[in-house]
Design a protein around this nucleic acid. Sequence first.
DNA 1: AAGAAAAGTCAACAAGTGTTGGCATATGCT
DNA 2: AGCATATGCCAACACTTGTTGACTTTTCTT
Lengths: 186, 186
Amino acid sequence: MAEKKSDRTRAAILAAARERFGADGYERATIRAIAADAAIDPSMVMRYYGSKEKLFAAAAEFDVRMPELHDVPKERLGEVLVRHLVERWEEDDTLRVLLRTAVTNEAAAERMRQVFIGQLTPTFQRAAIDQPAVRAGLIATQALGFALCRYILELRPVVDLTTDETVAWLGPTVTRYLTEPAPNQV
Amino acid sequence: MAEKKSDRTRAAILAAARERFGADGYERATIRAIAADAAIDPSMVMRYYGSKEKLFAAAAEFDVRMPELHDVPKERLGEVLVRHLVERWEEDDTLRVLLRTAVTNEAAAERMRQVFIGQLTPTFQRAAIDQPAVRAGLIATQALGFALCRYILELRPVVDLTTDETVAWLGPTVTRYLTEPAPNQV
DNA sequence: AAGAAAAGTCAACAAGTGTTGGCATATGCT
DNA sequence: AGCATATGCCAACACTTGTTGACTTTTCTT
């Protein structure tokens, strides 16, 4: 056991940071507020993470953990994917942190791109889906739009959807984005 | 002609405000930067608009101008709607201002709700579409997600879509959200 | 041309920001 | 035990923010 006490406050800072970044966005989440939540002094945050930027980088670490899609029947692709994404969104608040901050913070936007283009595209490629990048982009529009309306804007009808209803509504959309031949270019 | 000179700077301030709010979000768009863009003194902004909040309220005035849908054939609803929304988005940067700010600013979020629930729902109701609120919410997820990925996150594959390609991809999605019977509730 | 009103400039304020260094306390090793 | 090191707190810094009031210049009426 190297340093037990410091590890605990380190973790407390990170948890508070995620909470604040997720609730307030990058600029409105102040070091002082995060430190207060973690019940320590603001200077501790600097000692442990160096700067606000680096703290954010640590708080926004995320992996979407894409499942492999080889043996999923084509017409169920959307269902599987939507259910996975919704669950991922509910269990790990890091994605919400990213969404809230990516709009005004370039580093967060870059990480968002890595997740939704950089992680979806190769998965589709391995599943022998043509034009994987375009399809990843389209699915990102639907997935991120859903999260935006549900967790950030809190549009009543979207907040009220159950997981099953969500899958029933969005699943076919995603399936189509994955299987429909690309429209003719002009 | 009441006051010509003041009207011109008033408009210059509003234009600069829209630019900055749209590019930087609410908190990072400073009064000083807006004033500099408009080539006037920061105190002028206060004299004309009272406060940053009120300036923002003026800059975020928006009407989505929904077309009536009575005599659009059911299977072309999505096509018509998507084309209208994309055009609206390209011609009026106010929507981009709203999107960039709604994530961290409650007033902007409220206006977003008014636009996408408050203006879509009654239009669908007048077109005799059942469950108009849920369908408005679903369409908001797809429309806002598209805008987020294209104008804010700038995901390459989404930025590269032409208007026609966008309509071809998203049109059927929106049509389905408008015409598909609601899935069974649990 | 004289004076009032409008338009614009300047400097400062109070508050809040990220960040830093000095100093106290606790912890663990020998 | 004593000491070095890790951990923590305090006060202050330099800077930026929205906002204000006093002052000067322009514009227009009469």
